[in-house]
């Protein structure tokens, strides 16, 4: 017994191949070898490990199922809420401007806040659902022939209100169309996550978006002239919840992690160049077709 306790986990399992098989599958072999007291103890430990693993897997699966269902259930009322806010905003646009302290102006301001907060809720729920899918290994791409430029234009359109409210000029330099096989929703999410970071941390200075076709790949880059990223923060930039841990209140810190995972699923990668105080450039490099995957260091 003492001898067994002194052994490391690895040692106690090595040489007893059926134990590792049992931990992984939960099945015992049809013919069991003769047992010594040592292997009996190892078997007991292995059984405990298997029980713990099984429980942990169950817990993780049920947490992911809950998050997934909750996110779906939240999307429907959120859609109705967004539509009604947009409905009221459009109705107010047609009314004549009044004094700064009038009832109408107060309603306009309140509505702008509802608009901003409900949009933030949409972003958070989308990020949570994307993260749940990634954690569950559920990135099943629906590849369709798409014009990447169309994806970029469509996504920029979603941010038009935000850009004009903050007075940020955005330029799009592109040669199009750039046809390839991508999952439209994943790629829209990648563009949106990178663009929203440029808006958030760009100090309201101009943003340049560039889409270039290079042989069998395309390069999509977003450059801002904002605060830039501290070099010590760069290695962990694409990790989950990184932003949430370092700067609480600025979101979940999932945007870049999700973007990187979606780009990787398409066989591409994201590069970042940044200088504190000068701004950052995020460049997505993806193959036009998943079959011609690229190798990027």
């Amino acid at each position: 017994m003492t001898k067994v306790m002194k052994q490391s986990w690895a040692y106690s399992l090595v040489g007893v191949p059926w134990l590792t098989e049992f931990i992984e599958t939960g099945h015992l072999p049809s013919t069991m070898p003769a047992m010594t007291s040592e292997s009996l103890m190892s078997a007991l430990i292995a059984f405990c490990v298997w029980l713990l693993l099984r429980r942990a897997k169950k817990e993780v699966a049920s947490r992911e199922a809950f998050l997934s269902v909750a996110s779906h259930e939240l999307r429907t009322p959120l859609t109705a809420l967004r539509l009604q806010v947009q409905n009221m905003k459009r109705a107010l646009v047609d009314l004549p401007a009044t004094g700064p302290n009038s009832e109408l102006e107060r309603v306009r301001e309140a509505l702008d806040i509802c608009d901003m907060e409900s949009r933030r809720l949409v972003d958070l729920i989308t990020a949570l659902l994307d993260d749940t899918r990634l954690a569950g290994g559920m990135v099943n791409l629906s590849l369709e022939e798409q014009d990447f430029l169309e994806i970029v234009r469509r996504t920029i359109g979603r941010f038009e209100g935000d850009l004009s409210r903050r007075g940020i000029p955005l330029t799009l330099e592109a040669e199009g169309p750039i046809m390839g096989n991508w999952d439209r929703l994943c790629m829209e999410q990648v563009v949106a996550n990178i663009l929203s970071n440029a808006i958030k941390y760009g100090n309201s200075k101009p943003i340049a978006v560039c889409v270039v076709h290079r042989g069998k790949t395309l390069e999509f880059s977003v450059t801002d002239q904002g605060q830039g990223i501290d070099p010590s923060f760069l290695p962990s930039l694409f990790k989950r919840f990184e932003r949430a841990l370092h700067s609480p209140g600025e979101g979940l810190g999932l945007g870049l992690f999700i973007a990187k995972e979606f780009v990787s699923a398409h066989g591409g990668s994201i590069l970042v160049q940044s200088k504190p105080g000068e701004g950052s450039t995020f460049t997505v490099v993806v193959p036009l077709n998943l079959e011609s995957r690229i190798q990027v260091a």
Partner: peptide
């Protein structure tokens, strides 16, 4: 179009 969407997306 996945929900939630902006009305501009549907209009386009």
């Amino acid at each position: 179009l996945p929900k939630p969407f902006e009305i501009e997306q549907l209009e386009s």
